[in-house]
Every structure is written in structure tokens, then in C-alpha cells.
Design a protein around this nucleic acid. Structure first.
Lengths: 352, 352
DNA sequence: CTGAAAGCGCTTACAG
DNA sequence: CTGAAAGCGCTTACAG
């Protein structure tokens, strides 16, 4: 018995024909006698022949693999993105090679290198928080390998990106609070050095402006790490100021949760006294009490979208590069911001 | 300018030496003149030369890629497993190719096929719920490709598995409830046709037995789908029976959550009237009110563990096959089952 | 110290 | 209808 999988050569030898013939028979080339064709196919099936993708890749200069670099797999949002990429890839006959950077620059650079050695047909990347030197990414572009970014925008590089409309999502969330009657709205903001954090803050500011509410900087507190504890002390600090507060827009769900806890502990009612809305990093906002309103991010769609962008670029070899696709968020109103206690109509329906 | 990445041939041509020389210079072979060596290395760096992994694989018959088949990436537990696999693989210089089966037999079989074509060095699989025909997996073993299972045990196949100690985890959870004073303990069980579901039920039964509590079959209700709604109606049904209940052990967190909701709605106190403990599928058990006690599953460790098993098998080519590694769970006592309201000591400490 | 040759598994122009 | 040859990028025994 031979070790490893069967090759064309093995079949050729057993049938006393050439490799060329086997290759052609397998692919139903015209001009192969039906008898040979059948014999080859039978043997291939019997031995469970599978074409060696490595050999094919070497010859065709195409691996049908795309590489994905992601900060963390253990994160609801990112795992939905992976799922979208994976589904789209399988549909298109591509394999997916995944590298986790753990938000670490070194590992991101190493991963890029590993993927380039593997001669993947394209690379999808969500850059790590730490990354500010873009040389490793520039090399990818220079070598002519298609690359696209997702979730975290990278500017000034000749590559497309798919991102969330953070500005609009934030705007809608704040406008929703205003519609509910809120006038003194706190913003627990994301880190100012992150594009995402800045955009969400801008949305908050614009929504206030458009509704003639003057911005009071005391109402904006930056939560750099995005932990619950951090948000708790931020919120406590705000309550201690003794300024009127009737709404909270948090840049992420964890912060919203921290705020919720502190507000409840202070004996205030949610949403009656203070309404709260977050920005979704995960799926469990609905499980807390009261259920947390949130701005949902279309992770699965994002995955599908970057993957599709990539496959188009690979296959058509059109260098459309530098396209930016912006995906809409969805406002999910639950108990924590629903002062009217009536079911809120989210999706446009026939009688709208 | 050439398209694609630089090859040894390109360097050889530019330096007027042979490919052999370039190859040897790059690898610091003895018996290459320092001058040539330096020239080659300089040029390699200048052109950002990266060895073509495809060519290497074809020659060495080793890809340094492992394949992973997972039911769903969007699942906290599975994403931690992936993370463990990924970290271990990167450490050992392997790449990871991920396929998502979506709990679908067809897709699982296709993925196995794709991975085999890619000539991965080994395959890690968590079989889909649907899978009962094992032929596609048997073929992997027959072709001599190392394979290992995780999370869901597959018996009667010459391959190792890494699983959770579901029996023991369940036993400890129920014993904990008993220690808290519970005597009438409900079990919302997982599907009987899943190994996991059966083991957890066995743990429940044994714990009762060992504490001289007679099993009452009315207290055991199967929740096949593991949805919150299902658990809610199961729990409601139990309350309607008007039998005494002071504890609930749910086979998964979602079911525990459903039970919690119904119990609270019935005006009963948790944990005072009824204590509840779940089995962790996710990280947010701590966020609900009261915080949910649960049996934590070591997903990250599981990932590291299967990966290590695989790399050992690949590298030593020892066929230790059919080893079963059973990982311990960890009892996490939070508010929902802590009747004494005192912090519970979980980890063994010096004064134990 | 260096090179030519063979081979990993496949495909495909070129002959016949 | 079928085969021999070349080549994808690399390594390595074999010569020199």
C-alpha cells in the first residue's frame, strides 16, 4: 500500500497509459476514447483520487485561498464577520486561512508574511489597535496582492475598505433618545484615537445640534478601555456632578451596561428617569434587565461584503482599489430606551 | 517590473549564478563564498523575497497547514476553541484553514474534501449535529491523514478526541445545589440523542443518588432545541404541576435563562425559593440579574489541547490514535445559586 | 565553492 | 486517440 493520497501517476501506471491521458480523461477532454475515459474514472473513484491542490496552485499561480487577519476570534462581532467571509468563500470555491493578531502588531506583521508565503490570492484585514506603521501592508500592495480592510478603516493605502456607518448609527441612536423626550444626554465615548470612537462622537454632536440642544462638554466622558468598570466609574462621576441627566448614549454595549448598573443602584428608573442605548458588540443586549437598546452592526453582511469585493478583484483583475463601502447599522429599540412602553416599529412596513 | 513575488530564479538571473547557489546562500549552507552569500541575501532583502510555500509543500510533501471544521464560528464556546487552536498553531509555525459546516452534513463532507485536496497535514473536527454517516471521515483515516475530534466525541473511529467532562461538571453542579439545601431539583436536559446531553443527565442522576435523593422522572424535562422559549414553556409546565421545586440544573445557559425568567415572573425569588445553575455556552452569564451560576467549559484549553495532540502526531508520526482527553469544567457560583450570600471559594487556596 | 539534473503533481502546447 | 516534454518554484544528491 502506498502512503499518502493517490496521484495521477499511480493511476497512469496501473492502466499503462500516460499521465497526460489520465489528466485529460478526468477532465472529460474531447478526443479520449470512451473506454480509457471510463477505466480512468473508475480507478480514480476506487482509489478516491483527489487532485492535489498544491500542484495545481504551483502550476496555475493561483491558490484559491484567501487570508484573513482578525484581531480576535473570541468576539461576537468578529465571529459574525468570519462567518460571512467563510460562507461567501465556500460558495465561490475558495478556502479561508485565518490568522489572529490578538491586537498585536508583531503578530499581525508575521501573519501577513505567512499569508504571502502561502501565496494566498488575496488578504482581508482588520488591523490591530496597536498598528500604526503600515509598511507590512504596503508591501502587500506593492507585490500586487489584492487586499481589503474591514471594520477599521485604513486610509492612504491603495486598498478598499468595508466599514460600518458609525456616524449615522450614533446619530440615529441619539435622535431616538431625543424623540423619547431626552434633553440632557450623556455620551460615554470610545477612545478618541480610534476612527470609530471619533465618528460615533460626531454623530452624537450632530444629532444634538440638529435638534437645537447645545453641547455641554461635561456630558461627554471618554471610556478608553471599554470595560464595564470604567463605565461604572464614569457614570458615577456624572451622577455625582448633580447635573440633570435623562439619557445615555454609550459607544459600546459594555459601557451601556456599566451605566445601567450604576443608575439602577442610584435608585433611578430606566428608562423612565434615564434612558440608555448602546452600540452592539454582542448579541446578548436583549438578556439584561431592562433589555438594552442598541445600534446593531451588520457583521455577517460585512464579512460577505469584503469577501465579495475581494473575489471580484481577484477574478476580474480590475483594480478598482480604494473603494469604501459603508454599511448601515440598525437601531434596535428595547426596554432601556422605550419610554412609551409601546412596541416600536423598526422595519419599514406597508402602512408607513 | 515583474508581476507577482520574486523567485529564486529572478535573483539567480540578476546575479548570474545558479538557482542552487541562491537556495544554498539563503539557507546559510556551508561551502558558499561569503561574497556570493552576501550578494544573494542583499538582493533577497531588497526585493522582499519570500520562499514560495506552495513549491516547498509540493517538494516536501508537507504543507504546514492544519484544517479545522467547526459547526459555527458565531458561538462563544467555539470561538474560544478556534482561538486556542490558532494560538498553538502560530506558535508551532502552522497555518490554520477554517471551514464552517453550519451543522450541515453536506457541507462538512465537502469541507473534508476541500481540506484533503489542499493536502493539509492534519484535520481537527467537531462533527455537525446532522452527521451520522462517518464515511467521509473514515476516508481521511484510510488515507493516513492525522485527524482528531473535539467537543463532540466520535466513537469507533481510529482517531483521538478531546472532550469536556460533562458528567463530572453536571455532577458538581447538582451537588452544589444540594449543598445549598436544595432537595427537589429540576433538570432541563439536553437532547438525549447527543452524547453531551446524556452525560450531563447521568451526572445529575448520580449526584442525586449519592445524596440519597430519589430520582423523580417528572423533574426531568428534555429541551431538544436549547432555545430560551422552549425552556420557558418547560419550566412553566413544571410550575403548573404544583410539585415542590427548590433548584434547577439546566443543560445549557440559555435554558437556565428561560427558567429564570419564568420563575421570576411567577413571583418566586432566585436563589431563595429556587436556585438555578446552567452549563456555559457563553461568557455573559454574569450579566443577567441575578448573575447566573454556571459550569464553565475550558474552550481555549480544548483548542490548545487538540492542536497539540495533532502536532505531536504529525511530527513524531507516532500513531497513538484513539486517545481520549477529558478536560475538567469549572464550577462558577454566582448569585443565582448562592443561598448563603457569602462569597464562595472556588479555587483551592492555601488554607483549604 | 558552484552548477546541472531530477523530481514533487499537475496541465497543456506540440507531435504523431 | 495518445504520449513526450516543458514548466510552475524549490531542494538536494551528484559531479566537478
Amino acid at each position: 500500500m502506498k502512503k499518502g493520497q493517490v496521484t495521477i501517476k499511480d493511476i497512469a501506471k496501473e492502466l499503462n497509459v500516460s499521465c497526460s491521458t489520465v489528466s485529460r480523461a478526468l477532465k472529460d477532454f474531447p478526443g479520449i476514447s470512451p473506454a480509457t475515459k471510463q477505466a480512468v474514472k473508475d480507478l480514480a473513484k476506487k482509489y478516491n483520487y483527489r487532485p492535489n491542490a498544491i500542484a495545481l496552485s504551483l502550476r496555475s499561480q493561483k491558490t484559491n485561498i484567501i487570508g484573513v487577519i482578525i484581531p480576535e476570534t473570541v468576539h461576537f462581532f468578529f465571529s459574525t464577520v468570519i462567518s460571512g467571509i467563510e460562507d461567501e468563500a465556500m460558495k465561490e470555491g475558495y478556502n479561508v486561512m485565518i490568522c489572529q493578531s490578538n491586537e498585536n502588531y508583531e503578530r499581525e506583521a508575521d501573519s501577513i508574511d505567512a499569508l504571502m508565503r502561502s501565496r494566498v490570492d488575496g488578504i482581508l484585514v482588520c488591523i490591530s489597535r496597536e498598528t500604526d506603521d503600515l509598511a507590512h501592508l504596503q508591501r502587500v500592495v506593492d507585490d500586487g496582492i489584492p487586499m481589503a480592510f474591514f471594520d477599521r478603516l485604513v486610509e492612504g493605502m491603495n486598498a478598499s475598505s468595508v466599514i460600518i456607518d458609525d456616524y449615522e448609527g450614533a446619530y440615529e441612536a441619539v435622535e431616538h433618545l431625543i424623540t423619547q423626550g431626552c434633553k440632557q444626554i450623556v455620551h460615554l465615548s470610545g477612545p478618541d484615537n480610534l476612527f470609530i470612537g471619533r465618528k460615533r462622537k460626531e454623530g452624537y454632536v450632530s444629532a444634538l445640534e440638529d435638534h437645537q440642544i447645545t453641547l455641554d462638554e461635561r456630558y461627554v466622558v471618554e471610556c478608553r478601555q471599554g470595560t464595564k468598570e470604567e463605565a461604572e466609574s464614569a457614570m458615577q462621576g456624572l451622577l455625582d456632578l448633580n447635573i440633570p441627566i435623562d439619557g445615555v448614549f454609550a459607544s459600546n454595549d459594555m459601557a451601556a451596561l456599566g451605566a445601567l448598573k450604576v443608575i439602577k443602584k442610584a435608585g433611578l428608573q430606566v428608562p423612565e428617569d434615564i434612558a440608555i442605548i448602546g452600540f452592539s458588540d454582542w448579541q446578548f443586549s436583549a438578556l439584561v434587565d431592562p433589555a438594552l437598546s442598541s445600534v446593531a452592526q451588520p457583521g455577517y453582511e460585512m464579512g460577505k461584503s469584503v469577501a465579495r469585493l475581494m473575489f471580484n478583484e481577484i477574478e476580474q483583475k480590475e483594480k478598482i482599489r480604494s473603494e469604501v463601502i459603508i454599511l448601515d447599522t440598525q437601531l434596535i429599540v428595547r426596554e432601556s430606551s422605550n419610554k412609551r412602553k409601546a412596541p416600536v416599529n423598526l422595519a419599514p412596513s406597508a402602512n408607513d
